Amino acid sequence: MRIFGRVRQRPSTDWRLATNRAFSLIDDGRYEDAGALLTRAADLEPWLSESWFNLALLHKFRHDWEQARAAGLRAVALLERDAGAPDWWNVGIAATALQDWPLARRAWQAYGLRVPGNGHGSLAASGEPLGMNLGGAAVRLSPDGEAEVVWGRRLDPARIEVLNIPLPSSGRRWGEVVLHDGAPRGERTTAASGSPGGRPSVYPVFDEIELWAPSSVPTWVVLIEAATQADRDALERLAADAGYAAEDWSSSVRLLCRACSESRMPSEEGDGLALHDPHDHSVPGHPGPLGHTAPDGLWSPERECGLAAPGSLVRGLLDGWVADSPDTRDWRDLEEVC
């Protein structure tokens, strides 16, 4: 793990030994032991911004946001440059986790980002969320477990609203907002859509840190019979028109090894915000794509779909979808899974 070097003079040997040992312990998940060493390093070199940056980083790993904010503010107070330091990014993440919106605005602006409502107007003074609407991106849910990459909408530099319907193994739901780390780990590319030179769009993949805002909308899995792709699309439109979501997991989910998931991977459809942009489930090895299409590429009518809708609505939605074309549509085996 890299330790950023921006020092006025070379730190002491004891500081370097304690810090290097601490990051080895962090890599092993031994946060308490690492914290004792980084606290000792800060006592040895309190004038060094890295001492407090490293402590802020540790507290971020532990999700101790009060301590991360305090250490991060100590770090930025000792900086020698005005903008762009990663210390400010960590402060922004901690402030966002704590919903300290004035400090979050200050941190993102100090890093060099344009932030709405950062003047003397009512928005800056009210303490409301930033609402920067930074476009599409992907986020890796449960990055240390059964990782799954889903598409979402970036609300600000540290939060993404999930737009796919995650698989139940992730423990996440459609519409939830997750706090994410600042450094992308992987990229997804989508087909060019009228861009100059026909170049594809590239979207970063961020790692989830924790759930920021839960969703009350449950996830269901259902087996549908859809004679054509248009029949499947009609279900997704019907759910979207009702303010919820349906997603054909048979075609939208692919299995990737972790190395592929963390590299630049193509996403065959959409613009990073569309329903049919594939999301990824990372597993050991290199299994290739998962789907229920026939080997010759023909459409397979039986589809496994995820639905995000209240229990009071989900059966009526499916029955209404079938009623619109009973000869080409059917459903069975509805189950709430998350």
Rank of each mutant, 00 (worst) to 15 (best):
Q9P: 00
R10S: 09
S12W: 01
W15E: 06
R16Y: 10
R16I: 15
A18S: 15
A18L: 09
N20T: 12
L25Y: 01
D28K: 10
G29Q: 05
A36W: 10
R40P: 03
E45F: 02
E50H: 01
S51G: 06
A56E: 11
L57W: 14
R62Y: 09
R62G: 01
Q67H: 14
L73C: 11
L73D: 08
V76W: 10
A77N: 15
L79E: 11
E80D: 14
R81V: 14
G84C: 05
G84N: 11
A85T: 09
G92H: 05
A94V: 02
L98W: 11
L98F: 04
Q109M: 13
G117E: 07
G117V: 14
G121C: 11
S122H: 15
A124W: 01
A125C: 07
A125L: 15
G127P: 08
L130H: 03
L130W: 07
G131V: 12
G131K: 14
G131S: 14
M132S: 11
L134M: 13
G136P: 11
A138S: 14
V139F: 06
R140P: 02
R140I: 09
E146K: 07
E148A: 07
V149W: 07
V150G: 02
L155N: 14
L163F: 01
I165G: 08
I165D: 05
I165S: 09
G182L: 12
G186V: 00
G186D: 03
E187K: 10
E187L: 14
A191F: 09
A192R: 04
S193Q: 14
G194A: 06
G194R: 02
R199W: 13
S201R: 12
F206Q: 07
L211N: 03
V221G: 05
T228W: 02
E236G: 10
A239P: 00
A240L: 14
Y244G: 02
W249E: 07
S250V: 00
V253A: 03
R254S: 04
R258H: 12
S263A: 15
E269N: 05
L275D: 12
D277K: 00
V283H: 00
L298S: 15
P301M: 02
R303D: 04
A308D: 01
V314Q: 10
G316H: 07
L318P: 10
L318W: 13
V322R: 01
S325M: 08
R329H: 08
D330R: 10
L334C: 07
E335C: 09
